[in-house]
């Protein structure tokens, strides 16, 4: 980028954190409220896209050194492994369970294995969207 858009860059720096926080909220809220891994992943990607628009590809890549292909693959692996883990307890593939635990800071909290599965969805969605968008924008005309 030749010219520096101060307004855009400043507001992006603030907005990205808000959007990120919101997306993580959506991811974990999905269990009880509207949201979940899919929409959370999309919102995270939109925060990253905002970064790409404001700064250039290379800068963002330096800040977030993540290979999105590997992220997508990792997401699929996490989901599949969550399913496979149920074999350890002699229950069918992809059986989910949940329990309530007293955690030091959060108090009585529900821990559900479905959230780990959703985390896999989240990673896959980010990985795939970002792969598509960066590939296309890297491609010269």
């Amino acid at each position: 980028m030749k010219f520096t858009d101060v307004f855009l860059q400043t507001s992006t720096k603030i907005l990205v954190f808000i959007i990120m926080t919101f997306s993580i909220f959506i991811l974990f809220a999905g269990h009880h409220n509207p949201g979940g891994g899919f929409i959370g992943g999309l919102i995270t990607s939109s925060a990253l896209v905002l970064l790409y628009i404001t700064f250039d590809l290379q800068t963002v890549r330096d800040i977030i050194p993540v290979d999105f292909n590997q992220l997508a693959a990792g997401g699929v692996i996490v989901s599949v492994l969550t399913g496979t883990a149920s074999f350890l307890f002699h229950v069918p593939f992809l059986t989910q369970t949940f329990t309530y635990v007293d955690l030091p800071l959060l108090g009585n909290t529900e821990l559900a294995s479905a959230v780990i599965f959703d985390l896999g969805v989240y990673m896959t969605v980010i990985g795939t969207t970002m792969t598509i968008i960066t590939s296309i924008s890297e491609d010269e005309k």
């Binding site: 409220n33 979940g36 479905a114």
Partner: peptide, 19 residues
């Protein structure tokens, strides 16, 4: 253990499709 039915279906009841 989920109050969101849609999400429960997606990740728990019919998690295989989602996978």
């Amino acid at each position: 253990g989920a109050k969101n039915i849609v999400n429960a279906i997606l990740v728990d009841f019919r998690g295989f499709d989602t996978m």
